[in-house]
Simulated scan of single mutants.
Amino acid sequence: MTGSTQVPYLLRAARGEVLDRPPVWMMRQAGRYMKVYRDLRDKYPSFRERSENPEIAIEISLQPFRAFKPDGVILFSDILTPLPGVGIPFDIIESRGPIIDPPIRSLEQIKQLHEFNPDESVPFIRPILETLRREVGNEATVLGFVGAPWTLAAYAIEGKSSKDYTIIKGMAFSEPEMLHTFLGKLADAIAIYVRHQIDCGAQVIQMFDSWAGHLSPQDYDTFALPYQQRVVQQVKQTHPDTPLILYINGSAGILERMGQSGVDIVSVDWTVDMAEARRRLGPDIGVQGNVDPCALFGSKPFIRDRILDTIRKAGNRGHILNLGHGILPGTPEENAAYFFEVGKQADQLLVRA
């Protein structure tokens, strides 16, 4: 175990320090590509049981840490986890994904939602995060995560995953005031949830606005950005030193707007060149990413070259090495291991390259 006074490496990068190599972790690093996870899933088939039972969630969160020693260990959870705490029940069905029934379609339903009390509605979060902090010490940074208001609203209004988002967009374009009321309630609940995760031990928080990439820039400015800002502002009032990361899939067209959210780090997907992302975001915002998850199906020389190219373009300050989205099921575990290995040796490999 490293000395108790040492600041974990990823946290140093998130605070903007110049480092010899970027810290490295992977979105969805605890999950279906790992045999130990699949074995556990067979034993506990309910996703909610896996994520809401502290003993199981801790074990899953630590599986990639034991296997690969990433610089970040992220809470095993789901972005929908806080919804029952405001009065929106959900279930996750293995082959179909999240189901919210009844979906939120009326002002009456929105008015009936209540304030989020994390100790009552998500009592499992505290033991999970406190244990993760103890288990990893300063060998890794513990990350928490939440969904952003637009994305949680999209799930709640559509009632499930969607390809075209016609129901929430129909509401946005025909009954905007109703949607704004809902987004505001969600933003306030998410801010409480972020603060709670930090109080329980999370050192960095990533906010996923997964579906905001399906908005036009004009609609992003109206329905996504103000509510991201609302969450960030409330969190920064009480926890100004905790770095916040924002991730949106398919975000090439709204990258600069993501930087206006107030977060410290923008997680870039693989559709943007990292050097271009740096230019577009400016020097004051950190970046995370952005290797294509499919690169891990390539040869080791290919994987190495892609990683080193990303690191070169990102520079040595405020970059966290990651994939541009979650690691895919079926990814060879040895290639995941190699991703971490190259990231951790990047300073030596770049000298040789």
Rank of each mutant, 00 (worst) to 15 (best):
residue 325 H to F: 01
residue 28 R to K: 08
residue 308 L to Y: 08
residue 65 F to H: 14
residue 13 A to S: 14
residue 51 S to T: 13
residue 301 P to Y: 11
residue 62 L to Q: 09
residue 276 E to F: 13
residue 71 D to P: 01
residue 26 M to T: 01
residue 329 P to W: 00
residue 183 L to G: 06
residue 127 P to I: 06
residue 84 P to V: 09
residue 129 L to Y: 00
residue 281 L to S: 08
residue 126 R to T: 09
residue 122 V to E: 09
residue 293 P to S: 00
residue 285 I to T: 14
residue 331 T to N: 01
residue 51 S to A: 15
residue 347 D to A: 15
residue 292 D to A: 00
residue 162 S to Y: 06
residue 25 W to N: 01
residue 68 F to G: 05
residue 93 I to P: 01
residue 109 Q to D: 00
residue 319 H to W: 08
residue 33 Y to Q: 04
residue 266 V to S: 00
residue 335 N to R: 00
residue 124 F to C: 01
residue 49 E to P: 04
residue 243 P to E: 02
residue 297 F to Y: 15
residue 22 P to H: 03
residue 215 L to A: 06
residue 251 S to H: 13
residue 95 S to G: 11
residue 293 P to E: 00
residue 258 M to K: 07
residue 265 I to L: 07
residue 125 I to C: 04
residue 220 Y to D: 09
residue 341 E to Q: 14
residue 15 R to V: 05
residue 204 V to L: 06
residue 66 R to D: 15
residue 19 L to F: 02
residue 315 G to C: 03
residue 126 R to F: 10
residue 236 K to I: 01
residue 297 F to R: 02
residue 351 V to M: 12
residue 99 I to L: 12
residue 258 M to S: 10
residue 233 Q to M: 11
residue 276 E to M: 13
residue 175 E to G: 09
residue 97 G to I: 06
residue 344 K to E: 04
residue 236 K to E: 03
residue 1 M to G: 15
residue 103 P to Q: 04
residue 236 K to Y: 05
residue 308 L to T: 09
residue 232 V to S: 02
residue 192 I to T: 13
residue 341 E to K: 13
residue 306 R to V: 08
residue 194 V to G: 12
residue 172 A to Y: 06
residue 117 N to C: 11
residue 278 R to S: 10
residue 98 P to N: 04
residue 276 E to L: 15
residue 163 K to E: 13
residue 160 K to T: 15
residue 168 I to Q: 06
residue 231 V to F: 10
residue 300 K to A: 12
residue 207 M to A: 13
residue 285 I to W: 03
residue 152 L to S: 11
residue 231 V to E: 08
residue 300 K to C: 11
